[in-house]
């Protein structure tokens, strides 16, 4: 309850109401919310990979990516609905189109992305259906290619909007990370989709997936390191406690899986190890982010100290008059 006498070390003397949190922690559950974030990223990057693989003529990898993208979107939507306090009212998301709400925009992105990736996967898998001869004149592959092209637009949005979802809150560890989080999510999504591509595609055709995985792991690691470095006190939850443990495991798995992917080549064992490590790393990142958000909300220090410093610097917060 005492105030520090030296402004150089304000965290030593911040005041609070019996140490209680000021803001509320996110109510989102495990595993629903972090798994949704993982599946959304996986699906988004896989859709992009499907489109580029199609253009590059790598049909085998394109097929894997199409199936992965559709699976991620459908399974992700399932986790999203299950997370709601009133799942039966999921469609209320569709009653407004609201640019000030990243979750509203995300719902529309997910709807569009689910439709395009679903159509893309269905058209690729349709030829194995017994009824193919009947529906073949409907030019399903052309429809499918159009859907793939569209999902190359929805995919990158799907993989990165979730960063805005987290950043657009009062949680200091999330809000202040608004510049790095999109790149952390993009990198993690690439690593996830690359891993899935490696795991489910024969060696020769999987080479670009390995490259996606390696580059994605590099982007994820760099963005995470930059974020923790830049945030200072507000970034403490990413380094300490349960969240810190998860983030460290995530980084070890991502770096290890990424390095393995560079040498995995056509080795099935190394490919399996690398793909599993990258997938686990991407999941750990999402669970770590949620834990860091909870820790950031639980300690009033992260809310009070930066705001107090702002006031003492004579730069109180304000909103533009037109907003």
């Amino acid at each position: 309850m005492r105030r520090g006498e030296e402004p150089m070390v304000p965290e030593a003397g911040f005041r609070s109401y019996y140490g209680q949190p000021i803001i509320k922690a996110p109510v989102w559950h495990e595993p629903h919310m972090p798994v949704y974030l993982y599946l959304g990223g996986l699906s988004g990057a896989a859709a992009t990979m499907a489109a580029v693989a199609g253009l590059a003529g790598n049909d085998r990898l394109a097929l894997t990516a199409r199936a992965t993208a559709a699976f991620g979107a459908v399974a992700g939507a399932g986790f999203l609905v299950a997370e709601l306090g009133r799942p039966a009212r999921f469609l209320n998301m569709m009653r407004v189109f609201k640019p000030t709400s990243p979750m509203s925009m995300g719902s529309w992105i997910l709807a569009a992305h689910g439709a395009t990736t679903g159509l893309a996967a269905a058209s690729a898998l349709a030829p194995v259906l017994p009824a193919w001869r009947i529906i073949a004149p409907l030019r399903v592959p052309v429809l499918g290619d159009a859907a793939v092209a569209a999902s190359a637009l929805t995919g990158p949005l799907m993989a990165t909007y979730t960063a805005v979802l987290l950043a657009d809150t009062a949680i200091p560890a999330w809000h202040e990370a608004r510049k790095e989080l999109p790149f952390l999510f993009a990198g993690s999504a690439l690593a996830s989709a690359g891993a899935a591509g490696m795991l489910a595609t024969p060696g020769a055709s999987a080479a670009p997936a390995r490259a996606v995985a390696v580059l994605g792991a590099a982007v994820e690691t760099a963005a995470g390191a930059l974020m923790e470095h830049r945030l200072g006190l507000v970034g403490e939850p990413y380094r300490t406690g349960e969240a810190g443990r998860r983030m460290r495991i995530a980084r070890a798995l991502t770096v290890g899986g990424g390095l393995l992917a560079t040498v995995a080549g056509r080795s099935r064992v190394l490919t399996a190890l690398s793909g599993a490590a990258l997938t686990a790393g991407a999941l750990y990142t999402r669970f770590g982010l949620l834990a860091a958000g909870r820790a950031s909300a639980a300690d009033p220090k992260y809310t009070v100290v930066p705001q107090r410093l702002r006031l003492e610097a004579g730069q109180p917060a304000s909103v533009p008059a037109d907003s």
């Binding site: 990243p102 805005v164 950043a167 657009d168 107090r308 702002r310």
Partner: peptide, 29 residues
């Protein structure tokens, strides 16, 4: 909170960074 701020004040900036990341994702692929 001593100096609260509405988080959506920074939303345009957040979307700009997300757009940059989305484009980067496509570029990496």
């Amino acid at each position: 909170p001593p100096d609260p701020v509405v988080t959506t004040r920074d939303l345009p900036q957040m979307w700009r960074w997300a757009a940059g990341a989305a484009l980067s994702l496509t570029g990496v692929v």
